[in-house]
Design a protein around this nucleic acid. Structure first.
Lengths: 154, 154
DNA sequence: TCTGAAACGCACTGCCC
DNA sequence: GGGCAGTGCGTTTCAGA
């Protein structure tokens, strides 16, 4: 099974990153192909894991989640065990939309969505700070979502 | 046109946030309904804008974009014109996957994907720092993507 | 708002080059 | 690797409750 992708695959992926409802036929038209090879390529890209999943993107403004915060977390100790334990526990927190292990003074950056400042407060108090070995917590709040895309720049 | 959504809509949206390939029939089974009302509801949620788009999520690890950075930007002046100009110009930068206007000492946080540290350097030098009125730039790099979901916690 | 049925087009398969 | 033809199924529409 080859894990190499060519320019045709990239074009297909760029289209699907913008609109996964596009039919094989429509994509084929842009490539001067028929639907079959496009269909085969998409199936191959799924099987090889390049395409992870198909999802809908919701409009955050229309749901009741007006508070977005970045929370910078520093650990007290940096043992492998503590780090892995932290990562596991973060996975389980549904409020956390993104989490990155960082290089530098801050160990982790979390992006959290909340229904209100009070909910965010409760998240910090009852969930995040319950995780063992957290040293410093530092929250900053989003005033406006300027740009947010799920598409990779491939 | 009503802009209110009920619990049935929420269940549908939660399913589609995880897998938009689920058929109306499959979703209907979970709701003890037939496909028609599920279909109608999805169409309504699209038309009302709750569903913004259908996309594929790619596996970032399989594409050649190993460098992810958070770039904290402070503006020199904070006039409306400068802020809006910055927002517009950021939209056009394909390397920027996310950008937020922040409360606090730092004005903007950008998340940037690059093919290499050198590419990131060139992005900063040739594109970002070309934007007028930028004061401070501060980059920190992602060691590991712990969690990243496009799904809202609705 | 949901059910059920009918029509259409696409996903998907198999075989050809 | 791409094209072509066939089948099943999901989407889409609509009458009725």
């Amino acid at each position: 099974m080859q894990l190499k992708i060519d320019e045709t695959d990239l074009i297909i992926l760029r289209i699907l990153q913008e609109d996964s409802k596009k039919t094989a036929k429509e994509i084929a038209a842009r490539l001067n192909l028929t639907a079959s090879p496009v269909y085969d390529r998409i199936k191959r890209l799924e099987k090889q894991g390049f395409i992870k999943k198909y999802v809908v993107i919701l409009d955050k403004k229309l749901f009741d989640l007006p508070v977005t915060a970045f929370c910078q977390v520093s650990m007290r100790y940096h043992d492998k065990t503590f780090i892995e334990q932290f990562e596991d526990q973060i996975q389980a927190l549904e409020e956390v939309q993104e989490c990155y292990h960082m290089a530098g003074r801050v160990d982790f950056i979390l992006k959290v969505n909340s229904r209100s400042l009070e909910d965010y407060h409760n998240f910090i108090k009852n969930k995040l700070s319950k995780i063992e070995n957290i040293g410093e917590l530092n929250s900053t709040f989003v005033l406006k979502d300027i740009k947010h895309t799920s598409a990779l720049n491939i």
